[in-house]
């Protein structure tokens, strides 16, 4: 079977970035210490997951579950915004977005 590379501090920091989670140095250290043993424990799956075995993504196989193109009840603007940390002009107010136009 394939040997998985170990997960170090840099990897944890990169994953946290990708998952948009601010971690303290202590958290990074701790997770880096744990993840190898967890991944080792689960990596046994690749022992039996051979080419000829198909993947199952849904426990009960179904296809073609559709809805008809008919309008249903909507939320009111008030309901939509009721839980918003900040709202303005009927819209969700979010901090400045950097990067893409």
């Amino acid at each position: 079977m394939t040997l998985m590379p170990s997960i170090g501090r840099d990897d944890v920091a990169r994953l946290a970035d990708l998952a948009r989670i601010q971690l303290s140095d202590e958290e990074i250290d701790r997770f880096a210490g744990e993840f190898d043993s967890i991944m080792d424990a689960v990596a046994s799956v690749s022992e039996v997951a051979t080419e000829d075995v198909p993947a199952t993504s849904h426990p009960i196989a179904m296809t073609n579950v559709f809805r008809e193109d008919v309008v249903e009840n909507t939320l009111t603007q008030e309901q939509a915004l009721a839980g918003a940390p900040e709202a303005q002009d009927g819209r969700f107010a979010v901090p400045q977005i950097l990067g893409e136009e």
């Binding site: 990708l18 799956v45 690749s46 997951a49 051979t50 075995v53 198909p54 993947a55 199952t56």
Partner: peptide
């Protein structure tokens, strides 16, 4: 994440079949 999908999620879904 890229490069690990097959080994991890993909393999796990096969175990599901087994």
């Amino acid at each position: 994440s890229a490069g690990y999908y097959d080994a991890y999620y993909g393999s796990a879904q096969k175990v599901r079949t087994l």
